[in-house]
Every structure is written in structure tokens, then in C-alpha cells.
Design a protein around this nucleic acid. Structure first.
Lengths: 119, 119
DNA sequence: CTGAATCCCCCAGGATACTG
DNA sequence: CAGTATCCTGGGGGATTCAG
């Protein structure tokens, strides 16, 4: 393999790398995704419970973010046909598996904070 | 410890958790941070090299993002007093340590894509 | 209770031109 | 080469009100 095609390989690989990271980022970006996911890590929650748990979120944003999380296969929505209606949200297996990603991010965040302060 | 103070503990812990994740997120957010970091993983680069490597980035954005990365202790900027001026950018140790975070994100991104397609 | 509909503001980021 | 300076736009997200 010559130099130029080798470079192409690296660029291609790097591109896929960035794409996959962006997939992950797109799932957790938005101001409220992380608070929502974190709140659901400890179990099912109803709409109103989430609204209470997450400080200062409006129903509009909660609804919007939950919808996106559902579309992305992170959250499962279940409607109970009672009166009044009851809706429960829970993490899918994909959602639960996000936990280890978040843990690595927590770890790095803390380490990095130490580094900054240390200087 | 009673129920309510236990709940307080959980909320507090959860808050710190989210804070640390946000620290990490804040470092890599913005449209071009990841492409820049990825490009620098393979070694030092000059401004113009980065501009060429990263498709469609404008000097304005490259400059802005590099400045933020430098402030956050992710990138080190070195000026060589030649004519014309030469400036090199490289990852700090904190920047390099981000690699393992990104790898976990890549891994999850790929897995999650599989899950979605599988359905 | 669980949202949808509207209106509105702010700023991340693009385009373009210019400087030391 | 390594950036600045301006101007401008889209859409993320807040506040509020309405609906099933």
C-alpha cells in the first residue's frame, strides 16, 4: 500500500470513528437528556414524577426530549388505559447500557477537574 | 438514616454525577471539537493543516474552537518566532486521556446502531 | 394527568472580507 | 501563514395557554 492510499484509509477510519461518537453524542445531547436518563436509571417513572424530579424542566421540553429518546430506542413508553391516563417511562436495554458510557465520562470529568485545579 | 434523608443522598449523588458528565460534555461539545481532537490524536498540527484536514471548517470556527480547547486544558498551543509565524497545536495529557472516553462512546454507538437495525 | 399549540428570544455557527 | 471583524440566519429552548 502506498502513502496516499494509506492516508485514505486513515481518513476513512477516522471518519467512521467520528460518526460513531456522534451517534452517541446525538442520543445524549440536548439540555435535558442526561437528567432524564439519570432519573430513569433508578426505575420506571410517570410523566409527572419526571417533571418533579428534574428541576425547572417544562412539560413542553420533557415531552419533546422523551419523544426523541423514544425514537432513538433509549426509552420505552407504556400507556395504561385508566382514568385519568397513566403513562410510564423506562429505559430500554440500550438505554441501560448507556450507564457504562456515562460512568467513563464521570471518571474523566473528575480526573480532568483535578488536573485543572492542580495547575 | 431515614427514608427522606436517604432520598436526599441519592439526589445529591445524582447531581454530582450529572455535573461530572456535563464537565466532559462541555469539553467536547460544539460542532468541531471532536473532529479537531481526532485530528490531533495522530500528532501535532499547524493551523493550516487542521483547516485542510477538517472538511468545511472555516478559519473563524477553527480559531474559536481551538481557543476553547486551550482554555479547557485539552490542547497546547506553541508559537515559533519564525517568518512567517508558525503555530503548532497538540493534545495535552488530559486531551490524550480523552481517547479512552471516545473509544467507549464509539463502542456504544456501534452496538446501539446494531440494536436499532436489528429491530 | 399527559401532553400539544403558539409565540418569542437568543446565540451557535455560516459567509465573507480583511490584517499583521 | 494564522488568525480577526462583521454581518446574518436557523433553530434550540423558554413562557404561557389550551385540550383530551
Amino acid at each position: 500500500m502506498d502513502k496516499s492510499s494509506e492516508l485514505e484509509q486513515v481518513k476513512k477510519c477516522c471518519g467512521h470513528f467520528i460518526l460513531a461518537v456522534n451517534d452517541t453524542l446525538n442520543v445524549i445531547n440536548g439540555k435535558w437528556k442526561l437528567p432524564i436518563i439519570s432519573s430513569l436509571i433508578y426505575g420506571k417513572k410517570r410523566f409527572k414524577e419526571l417533571e418533579r424530579d428534574i428541576a425547572k424542566i417544562t412539560p413542553r421540553m420533557l415531552s419533546k426530549e422523551l419523544k426523541e429518546l423514544e425514537l432513538n430506542g433509549i426509552v420505552k413508553r407504556t400507556v395504561y388505559d385508566t382514568i385519568p391516563v397513566k403513562v410510564e417511562y423506562e429505559l430500554t436495554s440500550s438505554g441501560k447500557s448507556l450507564k457504562k458510557v456515562l460512568e467513563v465520562m464521570v471518571e474523566w470529568g473528575l480526573e480532568h477537574r483535578e488536573n485543572i485545579i492542580g495547575k
